[in-house]
Nucleic acid binder design. Structure first.
Length: 376
RNA sequence: UCCUCAGUAGCUCAAUGGCAGAGCAUUCGGCUGUUAACCGAAGGGUUGUAGGUUCGAGCCCUACCUGGGGAG
């Protein structure tokens, strides 16, 4: 199936690692892959303005069907002229389907074949989202990429439950495809199957047969050890369509980005960078730093001397630490600017490394300088 | 000078005569398709001082010290 608004081309394959370099063309611009997508759940990357998002090099960002449906509602956003205009982001947007919210808000929902009934976390009112409803909402929002409404299973998860969740995800994927009509919006299917190799492979094959424009890999990074996630990626890789973008959903620590790209992933999104930023932690080229710690009270060097972001070129650790200490709202803003820039720049480096066939060297250099066990 | 009230964790305050606590602050940790500017943990005390009563005193009694209020 061809769509005039979307195409994905692989431009280079790293001879050293097999990782791919590509470009995803969308109605709001081209996206170089592999790419990291900052998350703006409620039509806003927390603490950031769209101008700042552009300045740090964001190519595409994420928003969320579930949250925008509850507030302010997709009709208001349609009235505003669509999500791009509403939030002043003229570049690509991907919307998550709400499937993950159904999973993470467990306890106040009931999943049936038809769809999910749940209580709004905002006012307790009864709501219903089905594959069709999710498609309607995402089409009203007008994102460039819509995600299928899936069933995410937990970790650990027994085989029967995982299989049922996967099979329902497949049936729902068909319904999403059936109901999705907007040509200027790409629909991605989502591979599930928990942590069972055969289910993951079965899911990858089933989704491939449905011929989506791109594929999410869901249900990972839900509490399992990293090697377990990496193993799943290795297992399904041969069964993922070669000419389509692969999106590892919800993964975005620096080490996971590299490991994911090496395993053939093209797209990532993650709240980690912005969440830990607001809570006083930052990424640096040497590892994670809890910048609110007392030991930085007199440290007048930048958060990361190797960083080119606005925060690092203008402010010191002591200053940012003071802002956290004083509960100034700018603390979370500066840390967010930095953490997002850190990941975006790292992805730029990864793309360069792929182009120069030296991604394994890049990974080696990364682990030599980036201490996963200590904070500095 | 007298009367009166009050002195408990860095701060503001709890605690029938029966294991001395909370909130905030401090320190440290966690955070992966955001219900998160959030959540968790730890450190911190000769209960103003000195005596007394009591099996047992932060609490009751005496004196003193410090501070607030009042009278003169």
């Amino acid at each position: 199936m061809t769509n005039p608004h979307f195409s994905y081309e692989v431009t280079h394959i790293c001879k050293q690692s097999g990782a791919r370099l590509g470009v995803l063309h969308t109605p709001h611009g081209d996206i170089p892959t592999p790419i990291y997508m900052p998350v703006g759940t409620s039509a806003c990357v927390k603490a950031m303005t769209s101008r700042e998002m552009e300045e740090i090099g964001t190519k595409i960002l994420l928003s969320n069907t579930y949250h925008l449906h509850l507030r302010p509602g997709e009709e208001l956003i349609r009235e505003a002229g669509g999500l791009h205009r509403f939030m002043d982001w003229p570049h690509p947007i991907l919307t998550d389907s709400g499937g993950f919210q159904v999973f993470s808000l467990a306890g106040i929902r009931k999943i049936k074949e038809e769809g999910v009934t749940f209580q709004s976390h905002l006012d307790g009112s009864r709501k219903f989202i089905s594959p069709e409803v999710s498609m309607d909402i995402q089409q009203a929002l007008g994102s460039d990429i819509a995600m299928a409404f899936d069933v995410c299973s937990p970790y650990p998860c027994d085989y029967k439950t995982a299989k049922e969740a996967m099979e329902r995800t497949h049936r729902w994927a068909e319904r999403c495809k059936e109901h999705h009509t907007r040509e200027d919006q790409a629909l991605f299917g989502i591979v599930q199957g928990a942590f069972y190799e055969d289910l993951r492979i079965e899911s990858a094959k089933a989704l491939s047969d449905m011929d989506f424009i791109g594929y999410g890999i869901g249900g990972l990074s839900v509490g399992e050890p990293k090697p377990v996630m990496y193993e799943m990626l290795d297992k399904i890789r041969p069964y993922m369509p070669e000419g389509k973008p692969r999106y590892l959903m919800g993964v975005g620590s620096p080490d996971c980005l590299i490991e994911g790209v090496i395993r053939g992933i093209d797209m990532f999104d993650c709240v980690l960078a912005t969440r830990i930023a607001r809570n006083g932690s930052i990424f640096t080229h040497r590892g994670r730093v809890v910048i609110k710690n007392g030991k930085y009270a007199h440290d007048f060097s930048p958060m990361d001397e190797a960083c080119d972001c606005y925060a690092c070129t203008h402010y010191s650790r002591a200053y940012v630490r003071h802002l956290f200490n004083a509960k100034e709202i700018t603390a979370g803003r500066l840390a967010s600017i930095h953490n997002l820039r850190f990941l975006l720049r790292m992805m730029e480096e990864i793309r360069e490394a792929i182009a120069e066939d030296r991604l394994l060297d890049y990974r080696k250099e990364f682990y030599e300088r980036y201490d996963l066990t200590k904070n500095f």
